[in-house]
Design a protein around this nucleic acid. Structure first.
Lengths: 335, 335
DNA sequence: TTGAAAGCGGTACCAC
DNA sequence: GTGGTACCGCTTTCAA
């Protein structure tokens, strides 16, 4: 790999001029410019990225910490991040934490030693460890899809309360009063917001929420499988079940069918996210669409603003949901 | 952010000693070591990553170029890459090319200016552009899941020929002789390998492959939807269809059902990849399992060996498939 | 066992 | 418009 001095030798100018030619060509006399460009071409010179970043004291890199790469919803958020980052001149370091706090810590630390300029966190757990407290104070950071409770970090999220409420209203309109939930992770704020959306919609119609119908604690297919088994083993069973992610819904529908139930004739099951496959499931899933790409895109933009010291005054950015009605929910069965 | 000099001041030693204490503690007198460590703690010193990498002339970073983040199969490969990279002390830069050669080129160029030490390519298109020819010569690079035809780059892939042959044999055992294909991208070597696996298995039983039954050119759900429509509009229709990815299979099953066909009673449909959702589809998909995580893991390991100048003598690494028989394939319908 | 010092390759200020 | 040069922060050689 050739360096700037090589170019100097060939073109007979100083490093300053070579640099100027490349960064501010308008300040260089055309003839000089040509000489330099010719030498650049001949040597195949490309400015050393490390040297440049080092000198400038900026990495133009952000870290994205994800709990799980296999969920298309997260990946769509990351698509949005990646797309935005590229447009803003940033690179994306992928940090698959697999839920391990130690790994999260490693990735988070990258923002402390100049490896990265900022951090996007797709989890709701923070600080990752006690030592990470300093992160929050010193590192541009933003939380997506979930809020970090009790900490003052900017975050971007769906109107989870409204979405859950709308889904519940949809079920009530279909005649359901016995509404169950297969929840996502209980430790998250998202869980609380969605739960209260459901309860609110029910209470607006004077329907009482039955706590026995609240099961599940995760986002996997198996959460749905087990959730349905659990709900269907109860003496009094819900006629409709809201799952907190489409993966859970897919597991739940599968499980319901295995128990001999017809969806939606015997039981209505709805989802969250509207991942692409939702429409190809049998029956196609009624769900809440999240603008995942836009959320990711907004996240980088806000993050880069923080990095550039133009932080948005607001801590919270909320995106609207969209209720997508398909075939996995239907009128309540007459009994 | 404090630097090494700060630590020098506080501990009263030279930069050399501070550095040694951190990198080769055994060479430093215990008392000195303590002094230094105390100063490190007090200042919260972390060696500047950019400076270190710059000085060492190595980025410890690899770029992964993916055509599509929404396919769980790719993502599982990337999980394997990420996991292996972390263990080897490397970071992963995510390059979502979205199939755009210009973007691929941008990411590929990172390996030419010291931004990254190497490149893993999950596509089969290369060179991305004419200028990228130099990449192949100068940059540690490895191709995964697909082979770059006509270029001498190391690659890692499934035994696609064997897998397609095994799947076809499975269908033949079920009595099928009319076997159709909904193909993945036709420009890829994977396509050719799988196609010839199917044809071979058929010819071994003296069954002729009908070219009208070869449709499709992609990996999306919609490829499957359209593929089935196309096959079912023929005068003579296949009784079994092999899809080249599970996404395609999911679309195909959905489409078949919409046409009023029962799977597998009226038509058998099989897949490739064994992504997690395959088992939750109705009917659960008969498919070829690819050891995606291991493939990714192997890829980084090989790549890092190349980076370290210990390239494996072999250009090709093949992983074994596993035939997973579920319910989307069944005995041929008597007519 | 420790310290002095020469870089790594660009960048950008300042002088001409 | 151009060139000389100090410097970013760390690493490592060499000498003490």
């Amino acid at each position: 790999m050739s360096n700037i001095k090589e170019v100097c030798r060939l073109s007979g100018v100083s490093t300053a001029t070579v640099n100027r030619t490349l960064r501010h060509p308008e300040l260089v006399k055309p003839q000089t410019r040509e000489k330099v460009m010719k030498a650049v071409k001949e040597t195949g010179y490309r400015p050393n990225w490390m040297a440049t970043r080092f000198k400038r004291g900026k990495s133009n890199t952000i870290v994205v910490v994800v709990p799980n790469l296999l969920n298309p919803f997260f990946m769509q958020v990351i698509e949005g991040i990646e797309h935005g980052a590229r447009q803003l001149g940033y690179n994306v370091l992928l940090g698959d934490s697999a839920g391990d706090p130690e790994i999260e810590h490693q990735y988070a630390a990258m923002a402390l030693n100049g490896r990265a300029d900022g951090l996007i966190q797709l989890n709701h757990t923070f600080p990752f460890s006690a030592e990470d407290e300093e992160l929050g104070l010193n590192v541009p950071m933003i939380s997506v899809c979930d809020r970090i409770t009790d900490h003052k970090f900017p975050f971007i999220e769906l109107d989870n309360f409204g979405a859950a409420r709308a889904m519940t209203q949809h079920l009530i309109e279909l005649g359901h009063t016995k509404v169950g939930i297969i929840s996502g992770e209980r430790t998250s704020q998202v869980y609380l917001d969605r739960l209260s959306g459901v309860i609110r919609a029910l209470s607006e119609e004077d329907i009482l929420f039955n706590n026995d119908w609240l099961v599940g604690d995760g986002y996997s297919y198996n959460t749905g499988v087990e959730g349905i088994k659990q709900l269907m083993s109860l003496d009094s069973q819900p006629t409709a079940v809201i799952c907190f992610s489409d993966h859970v819904t897919i597991g739940a529908i599968h499980s319901a069918k295995e128990l001999g139930l017809k969806v939606p004739d015997d039981i209505s099951i709805s989802g969250f996210d509207d991942i692409t496959v939702a429409q190809y499931i049998d029956p196609p899933i009624t769900t809440i669409r999240q603008p995942a790409f836009d959320i990711g895109n907004k996240a980088v933009n806000n993050l880069v603003n923080i990095i550039d010291n133009n932080p948005s005054p607001r801590l919270r950015d909320v995106f609207p949901y969209e209720l997508i009605i398909r075939k996995s929910t239907g009128k309540v069965k007459e009994t």
